[in-house]
Protein backbone atom coordinates (compact mmCIF):
# COMPACT_ATOMS: atom_id res chain seq x y z
CA UNK A 1 0.00 0.00 0.00
CA UNK A 2 1.33 3.43 -0.94
CA UNK A 3 1.87 5.34 2.28
CA UNK A 4 1.21 9.00 3.00
CA UNK A 5 4.42 10.95 3.46
CA UNK A 6 5.48 13.23 6.30
CA UNK A 7 7.96 15.80 5.00
CA UNK A 8 9.95 18.14 7.21
CA UNK A 9 10.87 21.52 5.74
CA UNK A 10 13.95 23.41 6.84
CA UNK A 11 14.10 27.07 5.86
CA UNK A 12 17.77 27.96 5.59
CA UNK A 13 18.88 31.53 6.04
CA UNK A 14 22.61 32.21 5.81
CA UNK A 15 23.36 28.57 6.52
CA UNK A 16 21.08 28.23 9.55
CA UNK A 17 17.55 26.94 9.94
CA UNK A 18 15.02 29.60 10.76
CA UNK A 19 11.31 29.49 11.27
CA UNK A 20 9.28 32.49 10.24
CA UNK A 21 5.70 33.58 10.56
CA UNK A 22 4.11 34.69 7.29
CA UNK A 23 7.56 35.33 5.86
CA UNK A 24 8.31 37.88 8.57
CA UNK A 25 10.25 37.56 11.79
CA UNK A 26 12.60 34.57 11.97
CA UNK A 27 14.14 32.66 14.83
CA UNK A 28 17.34 30.58 14.56
CA UNK A 29 16.60 26.94 15.34
CA UNK A 30 19.83 25.12 14.31
CA UNK A 31 22.19 23.60 11.73
CA UNK A 32 20.20 22.32 8.73
CA UNK A 33 22.03 19.04 8.16
CA UNK A 34 22.22 18.07 11.84
CA UNK A 35 18.52 18.79 12.20
CA UNK A 36 17.64 16.91 9.01
CA UNK A 37 19.55 13.84 10.16
CA UNK A 38 17.71 13.91 13.49
CA UNK A 39 14.33 14.19 11.74
CA UNK A 40 15.23 11.35 9.36
CA UNK A 41 16.18 9.16 12.34
CA UNK A 42 12.90 10.19 13.98
CA UNK A 43 10.90 8.94 10.97
CA UNK A 44 10.61 11.86 8.54
CA UNK A 45 9.96 10.35 5.11
CA UNK A 46 11.59 13.21 3.22
CA UNK A 47 13.33 16.50 3.90
CA UNK A 48 13.16 19.82 2.09
CA UNK A 49 15.88 22.45 2.38
CA UNK A 50 14.68 25.83 1.28
CA UNK A 51 17.48 28.36 0.93
CA UNK A 52 15.61 31.57 1.72
CA UNK A 53 18.51 33.96 1.32
CA UNK A 54 19.93 32.48 -1.90
CA UNK A 55 17.29 33.85 -4.24
CA UNK A 56 17.15 37.24 -2.52
CA UNK A 57 20.92 37.49 -2.96
CA UNK A 58 20.73 36.03 -6.50
CA UNK A 59 23.26 33.32 -5.72
CA UNK A 60 23.09 29.56 -6.21
CA UNK A 61 21.90 27.32 -3.40
CA UNK A 62 24.57 26.23 -0.93
CA UNK A 63 26.11 23.21 -2.64
CA UNK A 64 28.39 22.47 0.28
CA UNK A 65 25.29 22.07 2.46
CA UNK A 66 23.64 19.87 -0.19
CA UNK A 67 26.71 17.61 -0.28
CA UNK A 68 26.77 17.37 3.52
CA UNK A 69 23.07 16.49 3.50
CA UNK A 70 23.64 13.80 0.87
CA UNK A 71 26.34 12.20 3.00
CA UNK A 72 24.19 12.26 6.13
CA UNK A 73 20.71 11.34 4.87
CA UNK A 74 19.34 7.96 3.83
CA UNK A 75 15.92 9.29 2.81
CA UNK A 76 15.09 11.52 -0.17
CA UNK A 77 15.58 15.26 0.02
CA UNK A 78 14.67 18.26 -2.08
CA UNK A 79 16.46 21.57 -2.38
CA UNK A 80 14.85 24.84 -3.35
CA UNK A 81 15.75 28.49 -3.43
CA UNK A 82 18.46 30.04 -5.55
CA UNK A 83 17.94 27.80 -8.58
CA UNK A 84 18.64 30.07 -11.55
CA UNK A 85 18.57 27.57 -14.40
CA UNK A 86 19.25 24.03 -15.58
CA UNK A 87 22.94 24.30 -14.64
CA UNK A 88 22.03 25.03 -11.02
CA UNK A 89 19.59 22.09 -11.04
CA UNK A 90 22.33 19.84 -12.39
CA UNK A 91 24.78 21.00 -9.72
CA UNK A 92 22.28 20.38 -6.91
CA UNK A 93 21.43 16.89 -8.21
CA UNK A 94 25.09 15.99 -8.71
CA UNK A 95 25.79 17.10 -5.15
CA UNK A 96 23.26 14.47 -4.10
CA UNK A 97 19.82 16.12 -3.96
CA UNK A 98 16.99 13.87 -5.13
CA UNK A 99 14.74 16.66 -6.35
CA UNK A 100 14.87 20.36 -7.03
CA UNK A 101 12.01 22.69 -6.20
CA UNK A 102 11.32 25.54 -8.61
CA UNK A 103 9.10 28.39 -7.52
CA UNK A 104 9.45 31.97 -8.78
CA UNK A 105 11.76 30.90 -11.60
CA UNK A 106 9.13 28.52 -12.98
CA UNK A 107 6.58 31.36 -13.11
CA UNK A 108 8.97 33.74 -14.85
CA UNK A 109 10.41 31.08 -17.18
CA UNK A 110 8.12 28.00 -17.38
CA UNK A 111 10.39 26.43 -19.98
CA UNK A 112 12.74 25.52 -17.10
CA UNK A 113 10.23 22.81 -16.08
CA UNK A 114 10.44 21.23 -19.53
CA UNK A 115 14.21 21.54 -19.74
CA UNK A 116 14.66 20.11 -16.25
CA UNK A 117 12.32 17.17 -16.89
CA UNK A 118 14.03 16.41 -20.19
CA UNK A 119 17.51 16.56 -18.71
CA UNK A 120 16.95 14.81 -15.37
CA UNK A 121 13.51 13.17 -15.47
CA UNK A 122 10.30 14.68 -14.19
CA UNK A 123 10.63 12.89 -10.86
CA UNK A 124 13.41 15.40 -10.02
CA UNK A 125 11.30 18.46 -10.82
CA UNK A 126 9.07 19.79 -8.06
CA UNK A 127 6.92 22.84 -8.67
CA UNK A 128 6.81 24.92 -5.50
CA UNK A 129 3.74 27.11 -5.61
CA UNK A 130 2.75 29.83 -3.18
CA UNK A 131 -0.99 30.52 -3.42
CA UNK A 132 -3.07 33.24 -1.80
CA UNK A 133 -6.83 33.30 -1.34
CA UNK A 134 -8.29 36.12 -3.43
CA UNK A 135 -11.95 35.18 -3.96
CA UNK A 136 -13.19 33.91 -7.31
CA UNK A 137 -12.82 36.13 -10.37
CA UNK A 138 -12.56 35.56 -14.10
CA UNK A 139 -8.75 35.68 -13.83
CA UNK A 140 -8.68 33.32 -10.83
CA UNK A 141 -11.72 31.03 -11.02
CA UNK A 142 -10.35 28.77 -8.26
CA UNK A 143 -10.24 31.73 -5.88
CA UNK A 144 -6.50 31.27 -5.34
CA UNK A 145 -3.80 33.32 -7.01
CA UNK A 146 -0.18 32.30 -7.50
CA UNK A 147 2.22 34.69 -5.76
CA UNK A 148 6.00 34.80 -5.96
CA UNK A 149 8.98 36.26 -4.14
CA UNK A 150 7.82 34.93 -0.81
CA UNK A 151 4.32 36.28 -1.25
CA UNK A 152 5.38 39.84 -2.03
CA UNK A 153 4.47 39.75 -5.71
CA UNK A 154 1.09 38.68 -7.16
CA UNK A 155 1.16 37.08 -10.61
CA UNK A 156 -2.50 37.29 -11.64
CA UNK A 157 -2.45 33.56 -12.38
CA UNK A 158 -4.96 31.04 -11.16
CA UNK A 159 -3.43 28.39 -8.89
CA UNK A 160 -5.25 25.39 -10.42
CA UNK A 161 -4.54 26.52 -13.99
CA UNK A 162 -0.86 27.01 -13.15
CA UNK A 163 -0.66 23.58 -11.52
CA UNK A 164 -2.06 21.96 -14.68
CA UNK A 165 0.27 23.91 -16.94
CA UNK A 166 3.33 23.15 -14.82
CA UNK A 167 2.61 19.41 -14.90
CA UNK A 168 2.03 19.53 -18.66
CA UNK A 169 5.41 21.22 -18.97
CA UNK A 170 7.27 18.67 -16.86
CA UNK A 171 6.73 19.08 -13.11
CA UNK A 172 6.63 15.67 -11.43
CA UNK A 173 5.26 16.81 -8.10
CA UNK A 174 3.62 19.93 -6.71
CA UNK A 175 4.32 21.43 -3.32
CA UNK A 176 1.43 23.76 -2.61
CA UNK A 177 2.14 26.36 0.05
CA UNK A 178 -0.86 28.33 1.24
CA UNK A 179 0.41 31.78 2.12
CA UNK A 180 -2.61 32.71 4.23
CA UNK A 181 -2.17 29.80 6.60
CA UNK A 182 1.64 29.48 6.54
CA UNK A 183 3.08 29.76 10.02
CA UNK A 184 -0.37 30.33 11.54
CA UNK A 185 -0.79 26.75 12.80
CA UNK A 186 -4.55 26.64 12.27
CA UNK A 187 -4.54 23.96 9.61
CA UNK A 188 -3.83 23.53 5.91
CA UNK A 189 -5.96 25.08 3.15
CA UNK A 190 -8.03 22.00 2.39
CA UNK A 191 -10.11 23.34 -0.47
CA UNK A 192 -7.32 24.39 -2.82
CA UNK A 193 -5.25 21.34 -1.89
CA UNK A 194 -8.09 19.04 -2.92
CA UNK A 195 -8.77 20.94 -6.13
CA UNK A 196 -5.15 20.80 -7.23
CA UNK A 197 -4.78 17.17 -6.21
CA UNK A 198 -7.81 16.27 -8.33
CA UNK A 199 -6.61 18.42 -11.24
CA UNK A 200 -3.15 16.93 -11.74
CA UNK A 201 -1.85 13.35 -12.21
CA UNK A 202 1.24 13.88 -10.01
CA UNK A 203 1.62 13.84 -6.21
CA UNK A 204 0.67 16.94 -4.25
CA UNK A 205 2.44 18.00 -1.07
CA UNK A 206 0.38 20.25 1.21
CA UNK A 207 2.29 22.98 2.98
CA UNK A 208 1.48 25.83 5.28
CA UNK A 209 -0.58 25.80 8.42
CA UNK A 210 0.13 22.58 10.31
CA UNK A 211 -0.08 23.01 14.08
CA UNK A 212 -1.74 19.77 15.21
CA UNK A 213 -1.92 16.14 14.10
CA UNK A 214 -5.57 16.55 13.15
CA UNK A 215 -4.51 19.15 10.56
CA UNK A 216 -2.51 16.44 8.79
CA UNK A 217 -5.36 13.96 9.11
CA UNK A 218 -7.66 16.54 7.51
CA UNK A 219 -5.33 17.36 4.63
CA UNK A 220 -4.88 13.67 3.81
CA UNK A 221 -8.59 12.85 4.15
CA UNK A 222 -10.30 15.98 2.89
CA UNK A 223 -7.48 17.65 0.98
CA UNK A 224 -6.46 14.52 -0.93
CA UNK A 225 -2.78 15.32 -0.30
CA UNK A 226 -0.16 12.67 -1.00
CA UNK A 227 2.25 14.21 1.48
CA UNK A 228 2.11 16.79 4.24
CA UNK A 229 4.90 19.21 4.98
CA UNK A 230 5.56 20.39 8.51
CA UNK A 231 8.04 22.88 9.93
CA UNK A 232 7.26 24.65 13.18
CA UNK A 233 5.40 21.63 14.59
CA UNK A 234 8.69 19.76 14.84
CA UNK A 235 11.11 22.71 15.05
CA UNK A 236 9.55 24.66 17.88
CA UNK A 237 6.24 23.16 19.01
CA UNK A 238 7.64 19.99 20.52
CA UNK A 239 6.10 17.40 18.19
CA UNK A 240 8.21 14.44 17.01
CA UNK A 241 7.84 12.77 13.62
CA UNK A 242 7.11 9.47 15.38
CA UNK A 243 4.50 11.14 17.53
CA UNK A 244 2.80 12.72 14.52
CA UNK A 245 2.85 9.35 12.75
CA UNK A 246 1.36 7.56 15.74
CA UNK A 247 -1.47 10.05 15.61
CA UNK A 248 -1.91 9.52 11.89
CA UNK A 249 -1.92 5.73 12.29
CA UNK A 250 -4.49 6.00 15.06
CA UNK A 251 -6.68 7.98 12.65
CA UNK A 252 -6.33 5.24 10.03
CA UNK A 253 -3.85 7.07 7.76
CA UNK A 254 -1.21 4.62 6.47
CA UNK A 255 2.31 5.87 7.20
CA UNK A 256 5.80 4.38 7.37
CA UNK A 257 7.31 3.30 10.65
CA UNK A 258 6.37 1.34 13.69
CA UNK A 259 8.52 -1.70 12.85
CA UNK A 260 12.10 -2.32 13.87
CA UNK A 261 14.81 -3.11 11.38
CA UNK A 262 17.39 -5.48 12.81
CA UNK A 263 20.92 -4.14 13.04
CA UNK A 264 22.73 -7.45 13.56
Amino acid sequence: MLLRRLIVCLDVRNGRVTKGVRFQGNVDVGDPVEMAARYAADGADELVFYDITASAERRACDLEMVARAARALDVPFTVGGGIRGVEDMHAALLAGADKVSLNSLAVRDPEILTEGARAFGRQCVVLGMDARRVGGSSACPSGYEVVIRGGREPTGRDAVAWAREAVDRGAGEICLNAIDTDGVRQGYELDITRRISEAVPVPVIASGGAGAVRHLVDVFRQGGADAALVASMVHTMGFTCQGIKEGLRAAGIPVRGGTEVGHA
Binding site: L2, L3, R5, Q123, E173, D226, R256, G262, A264
Partner: peptide, 21 residues
Protein backbone atom coordinates in the same frame (compact mmCIF):
# COMPACT_ATOMS: atom_id res chain seq x y z
CA UNK B 1 5.00 7.70 -11.63
CA UNK B 2 4.57 5.59 -8.54
CA UNK B 3 6.49 7.84 -6.15
CA UNK B 4 6.88 7.47 -2.43
CA UNK B 5 7.08 4.83 0.26
CA UNK B 6 5.27 1.57 -0.33
CA UNK B 7 5.25 -1.72 1.53
CA UNK B 8 7.08 -4.81 0.23
CA UNK B 9 5.93 -8.34 0.97
CA UNK B 10 8.73 -10.90 1.02
CA UNK B 11 6.71 -14.01 0.11
CA UNK B 12 7.19 -17.42 1.67
CA UNK B 13 10.79 -18.07 0.49
CA UNK B 14 12.65 -15.14 2.07
CA UNK B 15 15.89 -14.22 0.35
CA UNK B 16 19.18 -13.67 2.20
CA UNK B 17 19.00 -9.98 1.34
CA UNK B 18 15.85 -9.62 3.47
CA UNK B 19 17.67 -10.76 6.64
CA UNK B 20 16.64 -8.51 9.53
CA UNK B 21 14.06 -6.66 7.41
Amino acid sequence: PHMGWNTVGQGDRPHALWAGV
